[in-house]
Design a protein around this nucleic acid. Structure first.
Lengths: 219, 219
DNA sequence: GGTAATCTGTGACTTTGTCACCAAGTTATT
DNA sequence: AATAACTTGGTGACAAAGTCACAGATTACC
């Protein structure tokens, strides 16, 4: 691992700051670019644990009736809790992964990964907090689906994915529908209504003029 | 810990079979009965990790708009992944727990719990598999909500909670609605329809004559 | 036996999801 | 540049599920 690579990793994973120069030079640690659609299948015994530096990876499972069930997606600065648990629990990886956007990944041989967790408190906390965070995110999602209207869920998504200084978001209705687990038509209709009320404007592949402060936050 | 108590624990947690007699006698390990409605609040630093021998415990969090969001429920033979992650990650417990049915619990001081995880492979695997299992259960739930009809979800619930030799289930429409995250009226109506089709019979607080083999399994 | 609490049934209405299909815009192909 | 193929978004009609309001039925408990 070269110095600039290490700096890049630390920018995304500050919890690795405690690592000594010797630890960074251990055999097998590397940064690689993984092309879109690269896939890891369920049941493989992993040699490396990936830490995502950039890109987008979907983790999924096949359900009893053959559909793919998305467990979650990983982006910059995230690790896969299921991989961590398979390494720490010494069991096979119980899911599949598919790279959705070309991704930059830090590969850490499982033995070294395990050693880092044992030795370095910051990294250990990061890993176990990832577990907890993922469980809580998923619970919130279940709750949102059950109790919040589509309108509110769209609003919250827009608020979360824009900044005050940038009031537009590049996303198609279809993508947004997948994100929120609903149908494209529902998104189109709801956005149209919101446009009529002057809360935002819709354009092909883009939502602009988002009035963050006027979007309904709760209820 | 007495011999009969240890046997009771091992019946529920076979992964603890490797423990030596000395380990069972360590200070602080105990089996206690916890009454219904006993609650642990968010943010407490836990001294003991509970392993559930019997009963029902709900783990929940307060959402941003003040509602209680149920993360999951624990029954006999289960541990709380969030507690495990807070102990292993040395952070505070990020959720609340409420005992719903009087429960029998094995309390393990956190230090000992941690030592068990380090020393005993079976227990370590059990803990990390609990994480993985919980994540997968929650994903399946999200998927079911999104893609399966109420009718199918009721059918699957009935199949899962009855045995071939017992074709009835004691549950109110309200409880079933909460389990499936829907409204009581929807359950009542759907059960009524299913009764008309001869798939089951409804009685106050009970569903009887469940024709397991005729219930739709998928779709 | 009377009263309260719990459980279930129903109609009317709203929201969300599904299906089928069209129109406009974009990209690829020749 | 003309055409085809694909993406994206729009719409109407209908189905499924959730919400609200209220009424009966059954059970529990003084």
């Amino acid at each position: 691992m070269q110095k600039d690579q290490i700096a890049e990793v630390l920018a995304r994973f500050p919890s690795l700051a405690e690592l000594t120069p010797e630890e960074w030079q251990e055999e097998g640690i590397s940064v690689t670019t993984v092309p879109a659609n690269f896939t890891i299948d369920e049941g493989e015994f992993l040699e490396n644990a990936p830490l995502i530096l950039d890109g987008l990876v979907r983790i999924f499972k096949l359900s009893s009736d053959g559909r793919e069930v998305t467990l979650y997606r990983l982006t910059a600065g995230e690790c896969c809790p299921l991989i961590a648990s398979s390494i720490l629990g010494e069991t096979v990886y119980e899911a599949s992964a598919c790279v959705e956007k070309p991704s930059l990944v830090l590969n850490v041989p499982t033995k070294i990964y395990k050693k880092w967790i044992e030795k370095h408190q910051d990294f250990r906390q990061y890993i176990f907090q990832s577990f907890a965070r993922r469980l809580i995110i998923m619970s919130n999602l279940i709750d949102d689906i059950n109790f919040k209207s589509i309108r509110v869920r769209i609003s919250e998504y827009l608020i979360e994915h824009t900044r005050a200084e940038n009031d537009s978001l590049a996303i198609t209705h279809d993508q947004l529908a997948i994100e929120l687990g609903t149908a494209r038509e529902v998104i189109s209709r709801t956005l149209k209504k919101m446009e009529k009320e002057g809360l935002l404007r819709v354009a092909r592949g883009q939502i602009t003029d988002i009035q963050r402060s006027r979007l309904p936050a709760v209820q």
